[in-house]
Write a protein that binds this DNA or RNA. Structure first.
Lengths: 206, 206
DNA sequence: AGAAAAAGAGAACAAAAAGAAAACAAATTA
DNA sequence: TAATTTGTTTTCTTTTTGTTCTCTTTTTCT
């Protein structure tokens, strides 16, 4: 991998920033005018260096034509589209320990502008809140929550669950399932680690 | 797929921008004047390249006539991103009558490969199915459903609701709310028009 | 300061693209 | 029908463009 010289990065930056202003692939003469150069031959060397580095590609259409920005540039915004999908939530492991399974495109209305991730719900502990087994939940990554919010809580570093949080104090934290057949538990704050707060929910009926 | 040369894109841009100023399909001679060219033959080559690229189509009206911009090119990238968001569902109007309020990006997992649209739920009629007031539902556009599916049904051309459908026959259709405090109703098939089937659901907790 | 690298200018050449002009055929108009 | 416009093809010339080369100037580094 060759390293670009100063002038080459300068030219590359210019091409990247002004890609839109060239209707078609610009010719060397055209670029010379924009760059304030008097010789095609000089520019040619730089362009060839950029092509060699894979930053620019020759215009594929006709045999004789200028240069055009190549894909690697666009690849930069090819950041995975959507939120990380981390797996299911009754797995009994800390979220950090779970690998990202994939990425899921989520409507803007279902997420916040803070970092979020997606989990799939296992179990019936939140069924009375309309959160069913198999639903996907969008979680905003946080280590604290307000009373009444639904949180992803890691208990004793082993069990991760989705519960209402309530009665938070320096001495206790209560986690309440939304299921009439299940009961609430009270923990010491050290036993409970909040890993996120519910901000969205999705279900598929297919 | 051939790529256009610089002159060809130049000519194409001119045609696109000045499409309105040509009452009918312009002849080559006419275009030559506008483009400052002296020879039809030269322009002909360019036009043929544009036709070949599918950017321009020969005027279909008479056998021998100029060129005309084809629509597909511009129409393609104007497709809105996401599914049409049609409004809320307890509005008591047929879906067709409701204007598209906007477009909502929906995860692939929540839609089908058939035409779908998005509605916001008003009311508590499906609360026992975990569908709450304010939820968004993704509906696959259909005029029929299987028993047990959740459908958008238009009753007597006035009231549109989200209900389970059951006991379909040539004589009756039963629509069942998922709410213990509400009761099912039976209708004649002529009274009920199915407008779609539930395939996805979304909720925001923000 | 001196060597090496980088950048630039300019000329020369071949290939490609663009244009001009003429000639012909099909369609349209008078 | 005759005349004219219009699309189409062909041949040729001009212009543009990529490419290579040599030489000079500038920058960079030891």
């Amino acid at each position: 991998m060759t390293v670009l010289t100063r002038r080459q990065t300068e030219i590359y930056n210019y091409l990247r920033d002004n890609a839109d202003s060239f209707a078609c692939a610009p010719s060397l003469d055209e670029l010379c005018v924009h760059l304030g150069m008097a010789s095609r031959g000089s520019l040619y060397k730089h362009i060839m260096a950029l092509i060699n580095a894979g930053l620019v590609e020759p215009f594929a259409g006709n045999k004789q034509a200028g240069v055009r920005l190549t894909l690697p540039y666009e690849a930069e915004d090819e950041l995975p589209d959507g939120l990380p999908f981390i797996g299911s939530i009754a797995a009994g492991k800390p979220i950090e320990a779970l690998a990202t399974v994939g990425y899921m495109a989520v409507p803007d209305a279902l997420k916040t502008n803070k970092p979020c991730y997606v989990l799939q719900v296992k179990g019936e502990s939140m069924i009375d809140a309309g959160i069913y087994d198999g639903d996907w939940v969008v979680i905003e990554q946080r280590d604290h929550a307000r009373n009444g919010e639904i949180v992803v809580a890691l208990i004793e570093n082993t069990e991760a669950t989705l519960k209402y949080i309530d009665q938070q104090s320096s001495e206790k934290i209560m986690l309440v399932p939304a299921n009439v057949s299940m009961s609430a538990f009270t923990y010491h704050p050290e036993q409970v680690q909040i890993q996120g707060v519910l901000v969205g929910q999705m279900r598929s009926y297919r």
